[in-house]
């Protein structure tokens, strides 16, 4: 089963990290990612730019409305995601806990994936 781990955190806190703190977190996460990749479990991983860089398309009307900023104003924002192959909820939870220990604060939402197209692989 493929899972998405959606990473939520207060971006004000993450943006307040010093460059050194940010790099330390990224180094720990990269180590875990590399292991998952060797085990053939790692799909796409993305870190998103701050929500100030976001644009929202409200498509519930015609023509759609283009708005500056994130879709919803929340205390914690979607800052990134992982796609990971895991055999069970227990396994993906264990992986999420490991990632979480390297990157404290915030929450991970774990969502099983129903449909996935790996655009990077032709055919």
């Amino acid at each position: 089963m493929q899972y998405a781990i959606l990473c939520y955190h207060d971006e004000k806190v993450v943006c307040a990290w010093s460059k050194a703190e940010d790099e330390a977190v990224m180094a720990k996460l990269t180590a875990i990612n590399e292991r998952l990749a060797r085990e053939g479990k790692l799909g796409p991983v993305a870190r998103l730019l701050p929500t100030t860089a976001a644009t929202t398309l409200r498509k519930d009307r015609d023509p759609p409305l283009v708005l500056d900023g994130p879709f919803a104003e929340t205390k914690e924002q979607l800052l990134g995601f992982y796609v990971i192959e895991a055999a069970s909820l227990d396994e993906i939870l264990a992986i999420a806990k490991e990632l979480g220990a390297a990157n404290p604060g915030g929450s991970y939402e774990i969502r099983p994936i129903g449909y996935f197209v790996d655009g990077s692989r032709p055919g």
Partner: peptide
């Protein structure tokens, strides 16, 4: 990141 560094980041962001 230590607990203390994390706490000070939160306090700083809330300031």
């Amino acid at each position: 990141m230590t607990d203390q560094a994390w706490m000070s980041a939160v306090l700083n962001a809330a300031r």
